[in-house]
Structures are given as structure tokens and as C-alpha cells.
Simulated assay, not measured.
Amino acid sequence: MNRHFDSPWTMPRRLLQRYMPRPETLRRQKSLRFMHHLLGDPSLWMLSRRSVGNAFMVGLFVALLPIPLQMLAAAFGAWLLRCNLPLSVSLVWLTNPLTMPVIFYFNYRVGAWLLDTPARHMPDRLSTSWIAEKMADILPALLTGSIVVAIVVGLLSNLTIRLIWRWQVARSWKRRARQRRQRQA
């Protein structure tokens, strides 16, 4: 009797592996040669409940901070926590040129609320000159709100991914037990 054993942990892995680049592909990229030693570390490519949950935490935390070089910061965070590097780096694209103003304005409003300061309303036409003019007023609330929102979203995403992963594994175990009972009957 030839049974195909499919570990319950492979279900979430297969879904993620479909969209992730291979380490070999990235190592061949000339622009990434300086990171060759980092790209060769197998712990940064592992797909487990812990590594994926931590990757979401790192990627979303960095994405919600108004800092330059977010992808580099996410890669460093993934290296520090030994979590999935491609996921961490790709999640920073949550804040792209289209979503960035909305997300950072929300962070600013949260920071203004936490600091109990009146929030400035966005002008009808947002410009760099308006931002430069108001930066001294905006920056404390923006940084406070961004850090708080980043921590909350990072921790919630980690918890959510781990719970979804655990639910998928339990569902797979139940399905396999049901199939085993049906075969025995």
C-alpha cells in the first residue's frame, strides 16, 4: 500500500513557496553580490510558523515607519530574528507611493491623539513645501504614532499568522484522521 504522506505543515508552505523567489535566483543577481553570505543562510529561507510570523512582524513593523531604506531595514531585521527574508523585505511594499500618504497620515493622527495635541488637517493640495513648513509640528506626532502603530500591527500580524498556521495544521490533521477512518471502514 503506497500512501502519500503529506505533512500538515506543508499546506501553508506550498502556498508561500509558490510566490517566493529561490535563493539561487537571487544569488545570481549581480546587484545582490554584496549580500551573498546573507542569501546563503538557510534559516532566512525557512518557512515555518515561527519564521513566517516573525517575517510578517518585521516587514509590517518596518513598513509602517517613516524611514528611508525600508527594504534594507527589513532585511537586517530578518537577519537578526532569523525569520524569512523574502517575506520581510516584500512586506515593506505595503507602504508604496500610493498608500504612503494615507498610512502616514493615519499614524500622525494616532500620534497626535496619544500626545494630546491638535492634529493638523491635510491641505487640499499636499505639497512638499507644506510638509517642510509644518515638519517641526508634525514630526513628534508622526514618529510617536508610527512607532505605536508599527508595534501593534507587527505583534498582531505575528499572532494572526501563527494562529492561522496552527488552524491550518489542525484542520489538516483532522482531514487526514477522517480519511484514515474512511479507509479502515
Rank of each mutant, 00 (worst) to 15 (best):
R180C: 05
L26H: 04
L65M: 11
G111E: 02
R178Q: 15
A132D: 07
N84Y: 02
Y105K: 04
V152N: 00
R125I: 09
P97I: 06
P123K: 07
E133S: 09
Q179D: 15
A132V: 10
S157T: 03
R171E: 08
R13C: 02
T10S: 15
V152A: 05
L81G: 03
Q179C: 14
P21N: 03
A55F: 00
R176M: 12
A112I: 01
S7W: 01
L142T: 01
Q17I: 05
D137C: 13
W9V: 00
L139R: 15
V52S: 06
P21D: 06
R22F: 03
D41R: 15
V92H: 01
L60E: 05
T25I: 09
F56N: 07
V110N: 03
I147V: 13
G77C: 12
W45G: 00
I161H: 06
A141T: 02
K174C: 11
W9S: 02
S48Q: 08
A136W: 08
S43H: 09
S129I: 07
K134H: 13
R125M: 09
L47H: 00
L142H: 00
A132R: 11
F106I: 11
I131K: 08
I147W: 09
L72Y: 13
L60N: 01
A150V: 06
S127P: 12
M20E: 08
R14P: 01
S129N: 06
L87P: 00
M20I: 04
F61S: 07
R175D: 06
R50Q: 14
H4A: 11
A75F: 05
L85K: 00
S7G: 04
Q168E: 05
R3H: 12
I151L: 11
I151G: 02
G40V: 08
I151V: 11
P8I: 02
L26N: 02
M46E: 14
L98W: 12
L44N: 07
S127E: 15
G145Q: 04
M11Q: 07
L69T: 09
R175A: 12
N84K: 10
D41G: 03
Y19V: 10
F76K: 13
I67A: 11
Q182F: 09
R171F: 06
V110R: 01
P21Y: 10
Q17M: 11
S43L: 13
P86N: 07
W79Y: 10
R166V: 04
V152F: 03
